[in-house]
Computed example of a mutant assay.
Amino acid sequence: MLTKDKVHQLIDHMPENVSTEDLIGKIILLQKIEIAQKEIVDGEGTDWDDLKKEVESW
């Protein structure tokens, strides 16, 4: 879950004159990373070997 504290940390590490678009983009990226990490913990991720086989089939 994306918490206010994590957003504060993100903002603290950004330049002083950050654009709204860049800030929103970083927040969305952080949220997607957190969702992906939860999926991995819950066993919903794709195994690396399975992913390589799928890419090879393209």
Rank of each mutant, 00 (worst) to 15 (best):
M1D: 07
L2T: 05
L2W: 08
L2E: 12
T3E: 05
T3C: 11
D5P: 03
V7L: 12
V7I: 14
V7N: 06
Q9L: 14
Q9H: 02
Q9G: 14
L10H: 12
L10W: 09
I11P: 02
I11R: 08
D12Q: 11
D12A: 15
D12F: 02
D12H: 09
H13C: 04
H13G: 04
M14T: 00
M14V: 03
P15I: 01
P15H: 14
P15F: 10
P15W: 11
E16A: 04
E16L: 02
N17I: 01
N17V: 00
V18Q: 05
V18N: 05
V18C: 13
S19K: 00
S19V: 11
T20R: 04
T20C: 05
T20N: 02
E21T: 06
E21Y: 03
E21V: 03
E21P: 02
L23D: 13
I24G: 01
G25P: 04
G25E: 13
K26N: 13
K26E: 15
I27T: 13
I27W: 05
L29M: 07
L30H: 05
L30K: 00
Q31P: 06
Q31E: 15
I35G: 13
A36Q: 15
Q37A: 01
K38L: 08
K38F: 07
K38Y: 10
K38V: 04
E39N: 01
I40A: 12
V41Y: 06
V41E: 14
V41Q: 13
D42V: 06
D42A: 04
E44K: 02
E44N: 02
T46F: 04
D47T: 00
D47V: 00
W48G: 03
W48Q: 12
D49P: 12
D49Q: 01
D49C: 10
D50P: 02
D50W: 00
L51Y: 01
L51G: 04
L51W: 08
K52R: 06
K53E: 09
E54Y: 14
E54L: 08
E56W: 05
E56M: 05
E56H: 02
S57T: 13
W58L: 14
W58V: 13
W58N: 07
